[in-house]
Design a protein around this nucleic acid. Structure first.
Lengths: 243, 243
DNA sequence: TAGTGGTCTAGACCACCCG
DNA sequence: GGGTGGTCTAGACCACTAG
């Protein structure tokens, strides 16, 4: 049973405000109710309201002006594609207005190269599970991703793993691990034959390459990945706010 | 006069903790003092300590475990190159361990194209100031940047403007404007002749292109820019933490 | 002057982890 | 059980912006 009732007040308020922003109940550029008004409307303290508004402001959803009020950002749409989600391709695709889907292209079990072993804090030659996957936005392929996990984390054989799962779900279900950290490096590369054919682009075309490493709460490396990103089909943008 | 004394407690504490993390006073992976200990050490309330720790956790500098303690992230170094600063190249270069410098290559006053006008909410043909600048990391050129501002924002002629200034400083000094928002789009491109020659790379080499738009608190577009980024010389990375 | 957000406190209670 | 972080309150005072 999921105790919905016990979700923290702050999170419940955040959900409600995000929904109101998404649906235009608070229109872009308009002024939102004051902290005191919101506190009264929901019967909670001003401090709790403030923690939520601070979070929304940090994400660029709202803009706060001292002595004046809280305003809905004119960039709500961009802010929904927030960069914190850069590794979470489903969210990225969804917030660009498309329906995401994942298709497993191939998987194999193979020994780690020296570079891979170093990134995963393993000995070279340790067995890895490799997944090649293609992300679709409304049936158009937009991201080619390769993920590598230490085979030792899995209790099931490779064939039993549902390769179309989100990496977070996959690690949770088969490895009983939660992602606590992700480190993403961004590079520009030219499409090789594999990426070009899957993304339907010419060989040599510039692509974004995202190198991601996932860690548990105990800094245990859980997986690494390299993903090729067609930035003409999908926008990668960051909204940053100050004050 | 700058009233250092009146800086908020939370900010002063954050400065101190960041310094301790940077200098290894709290070693990577080790446990930090508890909230109560910090509150006592600095003679402030636990709530204030918490706001600071929450901020550091969101930036990936520390990791908090319920019922267990606050730990220094093993990724402090990467986290210092945090992506929130993606538009602030000086910070980016500095946090990669280099000394930043800016050199003005060229500047001109010219009418806006249709695309530029739209991005700046102006009529096509309105006069813009254009700055071409090169960012150095320890005397090695790493970023070629082009910035465009509406000329109407300036009270001085183009020649009087110090083109080696940080965009934030430039807008502050000559336009009396503060940057409140930045929206950054990331693309992969191939180096054209200009970028290649200034960055010392072959033509056609993949580069990162950052398209940035700066806005004031009132959503007034202040400047746009396109910057070419050599990702083999400078690392562009994002650390993301959950919980 | 009135209303807003910004800062800070003191204290309560809860949920979690460990020895 | 004792310590830790997580949540939340009530209320104080300050700093800023507007009409």
């Amino acid at each position: 049973m999921t105790p919905l009732q016990t979700k923290p007040l702050a999170e419940r308020l955040e959900d409600i405000l995000r929904q109101r922003l998404r649906e235009g109940f608070y229109a872009p550029g308009s002024r939102m109710p004051s902290e005191s008004d919101l506190a009264e409307e929901f019967g909670i303290s001003r401090a709790t309201v403030r923690t939520v508004l601070a979070k929304l402001a940090a994400r660029g959803l709202v803009l706060r002006r001292h002595g004046e009020g809280t305003y809905v950002s004119a960039h709500v749409q961009e802010a929904l594609t927030h960069f914190g989600n850069v590794w979470d391709f489903n969210v990225l695709i969804e917030s660009s207005g498309f329906t995401p889907a994942i298709r497993l292209l191939a998987r194999e079990s193979r020994p780690a190269t020296e570079t891979e072993a170093r990134a995963l804090a393993l000995e070279p030659g340790t067995t890895l599970f490799s997944f090649w996957r293609l992300f679709y936005a409304d049936d158009r392929p937009v991201i080619l991703a390769n993920n590598l996990c230490p085979a030792a984390l899995f209790r099931q054989p490779l064939e039993a793993v549902d390769g179309a799962l989100h990496i977070r779900e996959l690690l949770r279900r088969y490895c009983q691990r939660e992602i606590a950290f992700a480190v993403t490096d961004i590079h520009a590369v030219q499409a090789d034959a594999l990426a070009a054919s899957h993304l339907g682009k010419p060989v040599g075309m510039p692509l974004l390459a995202l190198d991601i490493a996932f860690y548990s709460q105990h800094n245990e490396p859980l997986a690494i990945g390299r993903s090729y990103f067609d930035d003409t089909s999908l926008r990668l943008s960051l909204v940053q706010a100050w004050r």
